[in-house]
């Protein structure tokens, strides 16, 4: 009997860091932001409850267009990342053996040893008008004059796909690794072409990994700030920039808070939709990730 309170205390102490982490760093700030997003300035330094910040979003086209653009571009980036990562993951999981496998995974990981900012600056060095790639294009006679490859959607997509690739490859390779070789052979043996085996056996088996990778990459992309700003410049038009502008430039915290909540809603809604469309549950997906 006397052991019980002691056990409870131990349990509480063990859980305390996790609870504090979740409570202080995740739940509390979000509650604060939620409350903040519903406060309207009615007079200098006087705030009242209202939906004005959300109304502002729908009435100002720049806001909701940037919002829609961010969503559409993020989905596109996720799709491109998936298409690029699938063959790489397939190779790592099914073909490469032993040391080669470890080497390849390390190679995917290597760019993440430097910060996102440095990686993005690296792309800027390659792409800018006086940079490496325009120089090479000119030297090869493919361009008459140095071309500006930065500050367009292509550059933004390139940077985001590059940043997301690892987070797609790892869950995909995990999922593909668990596919029994004999099952693939049986697929061929019974008359399946490469395409049939891929479509009916490999992809369905890898589905939890595909969904897990897509969720991670989508979340990272939607919430990215540095890459669209640096590679897209003024044309980046990422929704996180709007949030940044409200908080830091305009000093309109309630408006920024409302945008933040909208972005959270957007990513949650798209993830939910993705899970529904692919018939996966969050539980099995998280296991793959």
């Amino acid at each position: 009997m006397s052991a019980k309170p002691a056990q409870r205390l131990t349990l509480f102490l063990l859980l305390a860091p996790a609870i504090l982490w979740l409570g202080l760093l995740i739940v509390l700030p979000h509650v604060e932001i939620l409350v903040l997003s519903f406060s309207e300035r009615v007079a200098p330094r006087v705030y009242a409850f209202g939906f004005g910040n959300y109304l502002e979003f729908f009435t100002e086209p720049l806001y909701w267009r940037t919002f829609a653009r961010t969503a559409a571009m993020s989905i596109l980036v996720t799709a491109i990342t998936l298409v690029l990562a699938f063959p790489i993951a397939l190779y790592i999981a099914r073909v490469a053996q032993g040391r080669l496998k470890a080497m390849l995974l390390l190679l995917c990981l290597l760019p993440f040893w430097v910060s996102e900012l440095v990686r993005t600056l690296g792309w800027m060095i390659l792409l800018r008008e006086s940079g490496v790639i325009p120089y090479l294009l000119q030297a090869a006679g493919l361009a008459g004059r140095p071309v500006e490859l930065l500050y367009n959607d292509g550059a933004v997509i390139l940077g985001l796909v590059y940043g997301g690739l690892l987070f797609m490859i790892v869950p995909l390779a995990n999922a593909l690794e668990s596919l029994e070789p004999a099952v693939v052979e049986a697929g061929f043996d019974l008359g399946g072409s490469r395409w049939t085996v891929l479509r009916r056996i490999v992809i369905p088996h890898a589905m939890p990994g595909i969904v897990a990778g897509c969720i991670i990459v989508f979340m990272l992309t939607v919430g990215n700030f540095a890459t669209p700003v640096l590679l897209g410049g003024k044309n980046g038009l990422w929704f996180t920039e709007q949030i940044y502008a409200q908080f830091i430039t305009r000093f309109n915290w309630p408006q920024g808070a409302a945008f933040g909540m909208l972005l959270l809603l957007l990513s949650s809604a798209i993830v939910w939709l993705g899970l529904r469309l692919t018939g996966q549950s969050l539980g099995t997906t998280l296991k793959q990730a």
Partner: peptide
């Protein structure tokens, strides 16, 4: 190739397709 031969195999592990 294996998928064009009039031969079919029952695998040691059976290798049924678990997704079907």
């Amino acid at each position: 190739p294996a998928n064009k031969r009039p031969v079919n195999m029952v695998f040691q592990s059976l290798a049924l397709f678990p997704m079907m």
